[in-house]
Each structure stands twice: as C-alpha cells, then as structure tokens.
Amino acid sequence: MEYELLLSGALLCIGLYGVLARRNGIIVLMSIEIILNASILNFVAFSSYSGNPSGQIFALLGIAVAAAEAAVGLAVFLSIYQTHGSIELDKIRFLKW
C-alpha cells in the first residue's frame, strides 16, 4: 500500500516540478497530466485495497476529465499561439485579448 502512495507522491512531485520549472505551455500541460495520473493511481489503489469499486468509477471519471482537459488546454494554447506567436508562458504578460 505504502509503495503505491510513494509512487503517486513521486509522480506528483515530478509533475509539480514540470509545472513550476518549465516555461513551455505544452510541457506544463503534460505535467498536469502526470499529476492527474498520480491522483487516479491513488483512487485505483485505494479501491483495490478496500475492495470498494467506487474508486474505479472515480478513476474513470478522472480519465475522461483529463482527456477533455487536454483538449481544452491545447485549444487555449493554440489561440494563445495565434495571438502572441509563442507559447512560452513567461512571455505572455497579458490575457486581455
């Protein structure tokens, strides 16, 4: 049990590092995917150890949300790219138009 928690914590830390340290928007999006995966892993692990299938249902919900989030995030980054010509996050100083 503790191993799964360790793995999920490690994934969370790696994803947080990616979100905080990298400037490229798409890498940030990928890091968010990794964080989401860490939480879904927890859901599945707890459901497996407790024998309660509702954790798996949460996992399925999380997967669907993550896929939708990736699509929406990419759409946002594409429009940012079209207006700013870049997806470097620290170069985008204003989000007005």
Binding site: I26, L29, V44, S47, S48, A59, A66, A67, A70, L78
Partner: peptide, 25 residues
C-alpha cells in the same frame, strides 16, 4: 490492481488520445 476496465479505458482514452493531441499541438 485487478482493474482491467480502468486499464483498457486508460489506454483507449488516455494513451490513445492525449499524446496524439499533444503532438498535434
């Protein structure tokens, strides 16, 4: 963890679609 359905959905939706979307972007 003996949750095959989550595994298959993970591959079908997550591994099948999200990296493709990423590369697309």
């Amino acid at each position: 963890f003996l949750s095959e359905f989550v595994f298959l959905i993970q591959i079908l939706v997550y591994a099948g679609a999200v990296p493709v979307l990423m590369v697309f972007g």
